[in-house]
Protein backbone atom coordinates (compact mmCIF):
# COMPACT_ATOMS: atom_id res chain seq x y z
CA UNK A 1 0.00 0.00 0.00
CA UNK A 2 1.34 3.37 -0.99
CA UNK A 3 1.16 6.54 1.02
CA UNK A 4 -1.60 7.92 -1.20
CA UNK A 5 -3.70 4.82 -0.48
CA UNK A 6 -3.26 5.37 3.22
CA UNK A 7 -4.28 9.00 2.93
CA UNK A 8 -7.38 8.03 0.92
CA UNK A 9 -8.26 5.40 3.47
CA UNK A 10 -7.89 7.77 6.41
CA UNK A 11 -9.92 10.41 4.57
CA UNK A 12 -12.78 8.01 3.84
CA UNK A 13 -12.82 7.01 7.50
CA UNK A 14 -13.07 10.66 8.62
CA UNK A 15 -15.90 11.34 6.14
CA UNK A 16 -17.72 8.19 7.28
CA UNK A 17 -17.56 9.22 10.93
CA UNK A 18 -18.80 12.68 10.00
CA UNK A 19 -21.59 11.03 8.03
CA UNK A 20 -22.67 8.96 11.05
CA UNK A 21 -22.70 12.06 13.26
CA UNK A 22 -24.64 14.02 10.61
CA UNK A 23 -27.25 11.25 10.28
CA UNK A 24 -27.70 10.87 14.02
CA UNK A 25 -27.97 14.62 14.69
CA UNK A 26 -31.77 14.98 14.22
CA UNK A 27 -32.34 11.93 16.44
CA UNK A 28 -30.13 13.32 19.20
CA UNK A 29 -31.85 16.72 19.02
CA UNK A 30 -35.32 15.16 19.17
CA UNK A 31 -34.47 13.02 22.19
CA UNK A 32 -32.74 15.88 24.03
CA UNK A 33 -35.63 18.30 23.39
CA UNK A 34 -38.13 15.70 24.62
CA UNK A 35 -36.53 15.77 28.10
CA UNK A 36 -36.44 19.55 28.24
CA UNK A 37 -38.47 21.50 30.78
CA UNK A 38 -38.96 24.49 28.50
CA UNK A 39 -41.98 24.78 26.20
CA UNK A 40 -39.83 26.47 23.54
CA UNK A 41 -37.04 24.60 21.86
CA UNK A 42 -33.86 25.82 23.54
CA UNK A 43 -30.68 23.80 23.23
CA UNK A 44 -29.22 22.71 25.54
CA UNK A 45 -32.36 22.57 27.72
CA UNK A 46 -32.28 24.87 30.79
CA UNK A 47 -33.88 22.18 33.02
CA UNK A 48 -34.63 18.50 32.51
CA UNK A 49 -38.10 17.07 33.00
CA UNK A 50 -40.51 14.36 31.94
CA UNK A 51 -43.49 16.70 31.56
CA UNK A 52 -43.85 16.19 27.80
CA UNK A 53 -44.01 12.44 28.25
CA UNK A 54 -46.68 12.92 30.91
CA UNK A 55 -48.62 15.30 28.65
CA UNK A 56 -48.80 12.68 25.90
CA UNK A 57 -51.76 11.06 27.62
CA UNK A 58 -53.86 14.19 27.08
CA UNK A 59 -53.14 14.46 23.37
CA UNK A 60 -55.93 12.15 22.26
CA UNK A 61 -55.86 13.45 18.66
CA UNK A 62 -52.25 12.37 18.42
CA UNK A 63 -53.03 8.84 19.60
CA UNK A 64 -55.90 8.52 17.13
CA UNK A 65 -53.45 9.42 14.38
CA UNK A 66 -50.93 6.85 15.66
CA UNK A 67 -53.54 4.07 15.57
CA UNK A 68 -54.73 5.18 12.15
CA UNK A 69 -51.20 5.18 10.75
CA UNK A 70 -50.34 1.80 12.31
CA UNK A 71 -53.54 0.31 10.92
CA UNK A 72 -52.96 1.63 7.38
CA UNK A 73 -49.25 0.73 7.41
CA UNK A 74 -49.78 -2.83 8.67
CA UNK A 75 -52.67 -3.67 6.36
CA UNK A 76 -51.12 -2.07 3.27
CA UNK A 77 -47.77 -3.80 3.92
CA UNK A 78 -49.45 -7.19 4.40
CA UNK A 79 -51.46 -6.80 1.19
CA UNK A 80 -48.36 -5.64 -0.68
CA UNK A 81 -46.44 -8.72 0.50
CA UNK A 82 -49.18 -11.01 -0.84
CA UNK A 83 -49.59 -9.19 -4.18
CA UNK A 84 -45.82 -8.80 -4.48
CA UNK A 85 -45.10 -12.50 -3.88
CA UNK A 86 -47.59 -13.55 -6.58
CA UNK A 87 -46.24 -11.04 -9.09
CA UNK A 88 -42.59 -11.83 -8.40
CA UNK A 89 -43.16 -15.59 -8.78
CA UNK A 90 -44.89 -14.86 -12.08
CA UNK A 91 -42.11 -12.59 -13.33
CA UNK A 92 -39.39 -15.05 -12.26
CA UNK A 93 -41.10 -18.21 -13.57
CA UNK A 94 -43.73 -17.28 -16.13
CA UNK A 95 -43.04 -16.59 -19.78
CA UNK A 96 -42.73 -12.87 -19.99
CA UNK A 97 -41.57 -10.57 -22.67
CA UNK A 98 -40.06 -7.38 -21.37
CA UNK A 99 -39.41 -8.64 -17.87
CA UNK A 100 -37.23 -5.61 -17.22
CA UNK A 101 -39.91 -3.19 -18.36
CA UNK A 102 -42.39 -4.78 -15.94
CA UNK A 103 -39.89 -4.58 -13.09
CA UNK A 104 -39.17 -0.92 -13.88
CA UNK A 105 -42.91 -0.15 -13.96
CA UNK A 106 -43.60 -1.94 -10.66
CA UNK A 107 -40.77 -0.14 -8.87
CA UNK A 108 -41.32 3.28 -10.51
CA UNK A 109 -43.83 4.65 -7.95
CA UNK A 110 -40.85 4.99 -5.59
CA UNK A 111 -39.42 7.67 -7.85
CA UNK A 112 -42.63 9.50 -8.76
CA UNK A 113 -43.49 12.75 -6.98
CA UNK A 114 -45.77 11.79 -4.08
CA UNK A 115 -47.91 14.92 -4.28
CA UNK A 116 -48.65 14.28 -7.96
CA UNK A 117 -49.63 10.66 -7.26
CA UNK A 118 -51.77 11.96 -4.39
CA UNK A 119 -53.56 14.53 -6.55
CA UNK A 120 -54.08 11.99 -9.32
CA UNK A 121 -55.58 9.50 -6.83
CA UNK A 122 -57.82 12.17 -5.31
CA UNK A 123 -59.24 13.06 -8.73
CA UNK A 124 -59.55 9.38 -9.66
CA UNK A 125 -61.42 8.46 -6.46
CA UNK A 126 -63.70 11.43 -6.96
CA UNK A 127 -64.40 10.25 -10.51
CA UNK A 128 -65.35 6.71 -9.43
CA UNK A 129 -67.26 7.99 -6.40
CA UNK A 130 -65.08 6.55 -3.63
CA UNK A 131 -65.52 8.94 -0.72
CA UNK A 132 -64.43 6.81 2.24
CA UNK A 133 -61.17 8.16 3.70
CA UNK A 134 -60.01 4.85 5.17
CA UNK A 135 -60.34 2.97 1.88
CA UNK A 136 -58.80 5.78 -0.14
CA UNK A 137 -55.83 5.89 2.24
CA UNK A 138 -55.43 2.12 2.22
CA UNK A 139 -55.50 1.86 -1.58
CA UNK A 140 -53.18 4.87 -1.89
CA UNK A 141 -50.71 3.35 0.56
CA UNK A 142 -50.52 0.06 -1.34
CA UNK A 143 -49.13 2.16 -4.20
CA UNK A 144 -46.36 3.13 -1.73
CA UNK A 145 -45.70 -0.28 -0.15
CA UNK A 146 -45.94 -2.52 -3.24
CA UNK A 147 -42.84 -1.09 -5.02
CA UNK A 148 -40.69 -1.61 -1.91
CA UNK A 149 -41.78 -5.24 -1.75
CA UNK A 150 -41.39 -5.80 -5.50
CA UNK A 151 -37.90 -4.31 -5.60
CA UNK A 152 -36.48 -6.55 -2.88
CA UNK A 153 -38.41 -9.72 -3.71
CA UNK A 154 -37.59 -9.54 -7.43
CA UNK A 155 -33.89 -9.35 -6.65
CA UNK A 156 -33.91 -12.22 -4.17
CA UNK A 157 -36.19 -14.47 -6.26
CA UNK A 158 -33.85 -14.17 -9.23
CA UNK A 159 -31.28 -15.93 -7.02
CA UNK A 160 -33.76 -18.50 -5.67
CA UNK A 161 -33.52 -22.09 -6.92
CA UNK A 162 -37.04 -22.86 -8.15
CA UNK A 163 -36.29 -26.57 -8.56
CA UNK A 164 -36.90 -26.69 -4.80
CA UNK A 165 -40.54 -25.84 -5.53
CA UNK A 166 -40.71 -28.62 -8.12
CA UNK A 167 -39.19 -31.01 -5.58
CA UNK A 168 -41.79 -30.02 -2.98
CA UNK A 169 -44.55 -30.61 -5.52
CA UNK A 170 -43.32 -34.11 -6.38
CA UNK A 171 -43.45 -34.76 -2.66
CA UNK A 172 -47.15 -33.95 -2.77
CA UNK A 173 -47.50 -30.25 -1.89
CA UNK A 174 -49.81 -28.13 -4.00
CA UNK A 175 -48.27 -25.14 -5.76
CA UNK A 176 -49.59 -22.53 -3.27
CA UNK A 177 -48.46 -24.69 -0.33
CA UNK A 178 -45.03 -25.17 -1.89
CA UNK A 179 -44.65 -21.41 -2.26
CA UNK A 180 -45.77 -20.81 1.32
CA UNK A 181 -43.70 -23.60 2.93
CA UNK A 182 -40.54 -23.52 0.82
CA UNK A 183 -40.10 -20.19 -0.94
CA UNK A 184 -41.30 -17.79 1.77
CA UNK A 185 -39.21 -19.28 4.63
CA UNK A 186 -36.03 -19.43 2.57
CA UNK A 187 -36.48 -15.81 1.54
CA UNK A 188 -37.31 -14.70 5.10
CA UNK A 189 -34.64 -11.95 5.20
CA UNK A 190 -36.04 -10.42 2.00
CA UNK A 191 -39.55 -10.51 3.45
CA UNK A 192 -38.41 -8.93 6.69
CA UNK A 193 -36.42 -6.20 4.96
CA UNK A 194 -38.99 -5.28 2.35
CA UNK A 195 -41.80 -5.48 4.89
CA UNK A 196 -39.94 -3.20 7.28
CA UNK A 197 -39.08 -0.59 4.67
CA UNK A 198 -42.58 -0.67 3.20
CA UNK A 199 -44.06 -0.27 6.69
CA UNK A 200 -41.78 2.67 7.51
CA UNK A 201 -42.52 4.35 4.16
CA UNK A 202 -46.24 4.05 4.78
CA UNK A 203 -45.97 5.32 8.36
CA UNK A 204 -43.98 8.32 7.15
CA UNK A 205 -45.94 9.21 4.04
CA UNK A 206 -47.21 12.76 3.90
CA UNK A 207 -47.63 13.78 0.24
CA UNK A 208 -50.10 11.07 -0.82
CA UNK A 209 -52.05 11.02 2.45
CA UNK A 210 -52.63 14.78 2.57
CA UNK A 211 -55.03 14.55 -0.37
CA UNK A 212 -56.89 11.48 0.91
CA UNK A 213 -57.54 12.28 4.57
CA UNK A 214 -60.63 13.96 5.96
CA UNK A 215 -61.26 15.74 9.25
CA UNK A 216 -61.75 12.51 11.21
CA UNK A 217 -59.22 10.19 9.56
CA UNK A 218 -55.76 11.76 9.86
CA UNK A 219 -52.51 9.87 9.60
CA UNK A 220 -49.63 10.57 11.98
CA UNK A 221 -47.38 12.74 9.74
CA UNK A 222 -50.34 14.95 8.85
CA UNK A 223 -51.39 15.31 12.46
CA UNK A 224 -47.78 16.05 13.44
CA UNK A 225 -47.33 18.83 10.87
CA UNK A 226 -50.68 20.32 11.88
CA UNK A 227 -49.64 20.08 15.52
CA UNK A 228 -46.34 21.85 14.81
CA UNK A 229 -48.22 24.70 13.17
CA UNK A 230 -50.77 25.07 15.96
CA UNK A 231 -48.98 24.21 19.21
CA UNK A 232 -45.30 23.48 18.74
CA UNK A 233 -44.41 22.15 22.19
CA UNK A 234 -42.00 19.26 22.77
CA UNK A 235 -44.70 16.61 23.32
CA UNK A 236 -44.15 15.76 19.65
CA UNK A 237 -40.47 15.19 20.45
CA UNK A 238 -41.52 12.94 23.33
CA UNK A 239 -43.72 10.85 21.08
CA UNK A 240 -41.03 10.63 18.40
CA UNK A 241 -38.55 9.45 21.02
CA UNK A 242 -40.98 6.67 21.81
CA UNK A 243 -41.09 5.71 18.13
CA UNK A 244 -37.27 5.80 17.98
CA UNK A 245 -37.14 3.41 20.94
CA UNK A 246 -39.57 1.13 19.12
CA UNK A 247 -37.33 1.22 16.03
CA UNK A 248 -34.27 0.38 18.15
CA UNK A 249 -36.09 -2.68 19.50
CA UNK A 250 -37.15 -3.78 16.00
CA UNK A 251 -33.60 -3.28 14.70
CA UNK A 252 -32.09 -5.23 17.59
CA UNK A 253 -34.53 -8.04 16.88
CA UNK A 254 -33.72 -7.94 13.14
CA UNK A 255 -30.00 -7.89 13.84
CA UNK A 256 -30.27 -10.98 16.04
CA UNK A 257 -32.44 -12.98 13.66
CA UNK A 258 -31.11 -12.16 10.19
CA UNK A 259 -28.15 -9.85 10.76
CA UNK A 260 -28.15 -6.14 10.00
CA UNK A 261 -26.07 -6.39 6.85
CA UNK A 262 -28.35 -8.97 5.26
CA UNK A 263 -31.37 -7.05 6.41
CA UNK A 264 -30.24 -3.83 4.78
CA UNK A 265 -29.06 -5.41 1.57
CA UNK A 266 -32.17 -7.60 1.31
Amino acid sequence: MTRTDEIFRALSWVVALGCVAFLMLPIVITVVVSFSDSPVYTLPPPEWSLRWYRSLGERSGLWDAVTMSLNIALVSTALALVLGTLACVAVSRGDFRGREAIATFAVSPLMMPGLVVGVALLQFFREIGLRDAYWSLLLGHIVITLPFVMRTLLASMSAFDFSLIDAARTLGLSYPKAILKVLVPSLAPAYLTSGLFAFLASMDNYPISIFLTDARNKTLPIKMLQYLEEQPDPSLAAMSSGLILLAVIVLAFGARTVGLNRMIQG
Partner: peptide
Amino acid sequence: LVAMVLPMSLGVVV
Protein backbone atom coordinates in the same frame (compact mmCIF):
# COMPACT_ATOMS: atom_id res chain seq x y z
CA LEU B 1 -25.64 0.25 9.44
CA VAL B 2 -27.63 1.54 12.41
CA ALA B 3 -26.81 5.12 11.36
CA MET B 4 -28.29 4.35 7.93
CA VAL B 5 -31.52 2.73 9.12
CA LEU B 6 -32.39 4.34 12.45
CA PRO B 7 -33.00 7.85 11.00
CA MET B 8 -35.69 6.33 8.78
CA SER B 9 -37.72 5.58 11.90
CA LEU B 10 -37.83 9.29 12.72
CA GLY B 11 -40.55 10.73 10.52
CA VAL B 12 -39.56 13.32 7.96
CA VAL B 13 -41.79 15.88 9.70
CA VAL B 14 -39.85 15.56 12.96
